[in-house]
Amino acid sequence: MTDFSILDLVPVREGGTLSQAFEAARDLAVAAEQLGCKRFWVAEHHAMDGIAGGATSVVLAHIGNATSTIRIGSGGIMLPNHTPFQIAEQFRTLDALFPGRVDLGLGRAPGAGPELQRALRKDLHRAAEMFPQDVVELRALLEGTPAVGIRATPGHGAAVEMWMLGSSLFGAQLAAQLGLPYAFASHFAPDHLDTAIALYRRNFTPSATCPQPRVMAAMNLFVADTEDEAQTLASSQMQSFVALRTGAPGRLRPPVAGYRESLPPTAQAMLRHIGQASAIGTPQTVRDEVQRFIARTGADEIVFAGPTFDPAARIRSLELALDALAG
């Protein structure tokens, strides 16, 4: 049976506030828990006016306090931005606050220009090269391996579930080598999805915490009563993709009916390409699309992304989708 989870970027909407973004994330997590979702993940982004999840562990504490059973975690922490010791302390703290519910998804891409490198006081490109060693060190810190030479307190002996994130073959290979579950970012980078999953499964080395391969794949999800309404809901994310690709990222914009059709052919082609792992439409349409995606990937779990300008519309979208998938 395939599990379903949520990935949230904690979007800040045009005309909205940070407080409203955090409230919307909390409400979405509560709804996801009530609907039976397995996890609620928050992604780390920095220096982006429209994304409020930069202090990821703090946001997760907010989410954890509002929920009681759903797993909470990072999708992901960009480890080159940090030291393994700091992340061990943060996520062991979360594990103590919310025992048995905390995931630590790790990514390699620093996603930063020179300004952020200066602000973080790090050579992020060098740090990205050290990513495999840092993942091993972080796992050792969480497990309390004596060879590390220092105890992360908090951080020692945490029951945090580690995941490797990726959008290329590198993460798949590292996840297989270390015996970690693997999550692929197909909701915005679908090109290597099939090859990465096949590589991961073929090369997987069992570990104490993950005895067999476990695959999560991401999809964009927008569901409404009509196809046109679903496309309109999705247009806020489409505008964000276009703004990002044209170097003008900003806050999440209101939906625009017929937005995709209003774009020049090159922009439409870009949206079709990056939106290949998407389910947009009525409940029946989305159910069929999600089931085809599961059959294609063999994923153990699907994590749904897809911000909407109206937070209530995303909760309604999730309700419609999960009801259809359960039928």
Results as ranks from 00 to 15, higher is better:
residue 2 T to D: 05
residue 4 F to E: 01
residue 5 S to C: 06
residue 5 S to F: 12
residue 20 Q to E: 11
residue 21 A to G: 13
residue 22 F to C: 00
residue 23 E to C: 01
residue 25 A to C: 11
residue 26 R to G: 12
residue 33 E to R: 06
residue 40 F to D: 12
residue 42 V to P: 07
residue 49 D to R: 13
residue 52 A to I: 02
residue 53 G to S: 06
residue 60 L to I: 14
residue 68 S to F: 10
residue 72 I to Q: 02
residue 73 G to R: 11
residue 76 G to D: 03
residue 80 P to N: 08
residue 83 T to F: 08
residue 84 P to I: 09
residue 84 P to G: 07
residue 86 Q to F: 03
residue 87 I to T: 13
residue 89 E to V: 06
residue 89 E to Y: 00
residue 94 L to W: 08
residue 99 P to S: 00
residue 102 V to C: 08
residue 104 L to N: 03
residue 105 G to P: 06
residue 109 A to C: 13
residue 112 A to G: 13
residue 114 P to C: 04
residue 114 P to E: 07
residue 115 E to P: 05
residue 118 R to C: 06
residue 120 L to S: 05
residue 121 R to M: 14
residue 122 K to D: 11
residue 123 D to N: 04
residue 127 A to G: 06
residue 131 F to I: 11
residue 136 V to I: 13
residue 137 E to N: 11
residue 143 E to F: 00
residue 146 P to S: 10
residue 147 A to I: 15
residue 148 V to P: 11
residue 149 G to M: 08
residue 151 R to C: 00
residue 152 A to F: 05
residue 152 A to Y: 11
residue 152 A to Q: 11
residue 165 L to E: 04
residue 170 F to G: 01
residue 170 F to T: 09
residue 173 Q to R: 14
residue 175 A to L: 03
residue 176 A to P: 08
residue 176 A to L: 04
residue 177 Q to P: 08
residue 181 P to H: 00
residue 184 F to C: 15
residue 188 F to W: 07
residue 194 D to C: 09
residue 197 I to H: 10
residue 202 R to F: 07
residue 203 N to G: 06
residue 207 S to D: 15
residue 207 S to Y: 15
residue 218 A to G: 14
residue 224 A to S: 14
residue 226 T to F: 09
residue 227 E to F: 03
residue 233 L to R: 09
residue 238 M to E: 05
residue 238 M to I: 01
residue 238 M to S: 06
residue 243 A to K: 10
residue 245 R to M: 14
residue 246 T to Q: 10
residue 246 T to A: 08
residue 249 P to M: 04
residue 251 R to D: 03
residue 251 R to L: 07
residue 251 R to K: 12
residue 253 R to S: 12
residue 257 A to F: 15
residue 259 Y to F: 03
residue 262 S to T: 09
residue 263 L to Y: 13
residue 265 P to Q: 00
residue 266 T to Q: 09
residue 270 M to T: 11
residue 273 H to W: 15
residue 273 H to R: 14
residue 276 Q to H: 07
residue 278 S to Y: 05
residue 283 P to F: 08
residue 284 Q to A: 06
residue 290 V to A: 04
residue 293 F to G: 12
residue 296 R to L: 14
residue 300 D to T: 04
residue 301 E to D: 07
residue 312 A to S: 01
residue 318 L to N: 00
residue 324 A to D: 04
residue 326 A to G: 02
residue 327 G to W: 02
